[in-house]
Design a protein around this nucleic acid. Structure first.
Lengths: 141, 141
DNA sequence: GTGCGTACTTCCCAAGAGAGAGTAACTCTC
DNA sequence: GAGAGTTACTCTCTCTTGGGAAGTACGCAC
């Protein structure tokens, strides 16, 4: 009876998750990360604020709130707490008056940021094309 | 007065879109593609159904419905129509009885699929890690 | 006749997002 | 002193949209 190597264990673990299945935990995780606020928050913390030139950096709640136009206080708080729970973001409270709270990507968060950054770029890079295709669709329907 | 080259025009167009701004069209596009059903539909049409080994292929509505566990008829229809309008998916109706409708990725859809595939993989590959981090978070709160 | 398949369409209700204001503690300006 | 600003939330009410379920028309099998 051969023992299972660590690499084999990892392969088995991979095959155990299938996000197409509603009951699979990875599905719930995929549902969570396929969320517009998650995408924008990770991009902000990843340093995309000034067009993609920056480095990952800690940001304050109020900075995030100002940068991500349209996010409600409730959704920002809720999403940041969820990201913290999933280990994607650190939340560092400094007992100043008023209190200051810094949020920053963890290594895990950084690994996901590299994909959400692509999503944002895709939306910006293909906006013109999609716009035209929408007009064609609307003319035909 | 130098004329603007095509490459410069493209650069300018890129700078014109900023998905952090709520009023920017690319923001609405990002909101659309940062959607769990979009991600799963693109992965299904991209050939991920059998674990990532397949090729992009046309699929029927009913095939998609069966593969993507938990999607309602309403959300599947609604999302497919939106993807068609954006030019990411083709919808081909064959007047059989009953009717058969095939959905397939366009080239544009394929380009986005390459990123949504990464999202799905990330969720599956990091599920164990996130699970442990959640337990740590819950123990601390 | 009943049940299956096809791909939607429709209706009602539930869940969660959105909007706005409140909280505490402090600082600054008039 | 009053009022406005800052910080990062918390709370309440309203509205939007997703979820759930059933309906539609036609052909085929039993």
């Amino acid at each position: 009876m051969a023992t299972v190597t660590a690499a084999e264990k990892r392969d088995q673990a991979k095959n155990a998750y299938n996000a197409f299945l509603a009951v699979c935990p990875s599905r719930q995780l995929l549902d969570r990360i396929s969320d517009k606020w998650v995408v924008l928050i990770l991009c902000a913390l990843g340093g995309d604020a000034d067009g993609g030139i920056g480095e990952p950096a800690a940001m304050r709640y109020s900075e995030l709130s100002r940068l991500i136009a349209g996010v409600s206080q409730k959704m920002l708080t809720q999403t940041l707490r969820a990201l913290e729970r999933d280990g994607l973001v650190t939340r560092t409270v400094t007992p100043t008056v008023p209190v200051t709270v810094d949020y920053a990507l963890t290594d895990l968060g950084l690994s996901l940021y590299r994909t959400t950054r692509r999503l944002r770029h895709w939306a910006q890079d293909h906006m013109d094309e999609v716009r035209i295709l929408r007009e064609h669709y609307d003319a035909d329907h």
